[in-house]
Amino acid sequence: MEIFQIWVLPRLNYLIYIFLMLLGLYGMLVKRNYMKKVIGLNILQTAIILFFISTAAKIGATIPIIANHEHHGSHAAVNAVQYINPLPHVLMLTAIVVAVATLGVALAMVIRIYQLFSTIEEDQVLLQLRRETLVADAKESFHD
């Protein structure tokens, strides 16, 4: 019980991030619908972004925009403890925009698969592909 209060409770949010990450992996690997796989991919990405942003947080600090600055040249000392770490924000800001780019490409592939197979269920697509190879093999052996 003591271990729970000292170790687990301050890190409870990390455990939820892990849960979200595994949820995304579950969606990508176990779900057979391609659209669900794309949503799982996005949940995985956002879980990792969430983890990065949480490493930037500081208790008692404010947002990383310097307040009350006069014109530049006034070398007022900026204390690093007062502001939240801006570096993970920068990395993850670009990661979010790349996430929407990958989402667009993934959805384009899903639409293309639907045009070719008229289904977005993975097992039915695999079934159709297997049937096609069987037919092709049979034709080849017939010609031989």
């Binding site: 890190r11 490493t55 930037a56 500081k58 208790i59 310097i66 000392a77 900026v78 690093a80 993970p88």
Partner: peptide, 26 residues
């Protein structure tokens, strides 16, 4: 995760190496 610094720790490794430079000099 149990080895991680707690959430919002000001002396965590992520906010003690590179980021003070950005905060102070940007």
């Amino acid at each position: 995760v149990l080895e991680f610094p707690g959430l919002g720790d000001p002396s965590s490794p992520a906010s003690s190496h590179l980021s003070p430079y950005y905060i102070q000099h940007s």
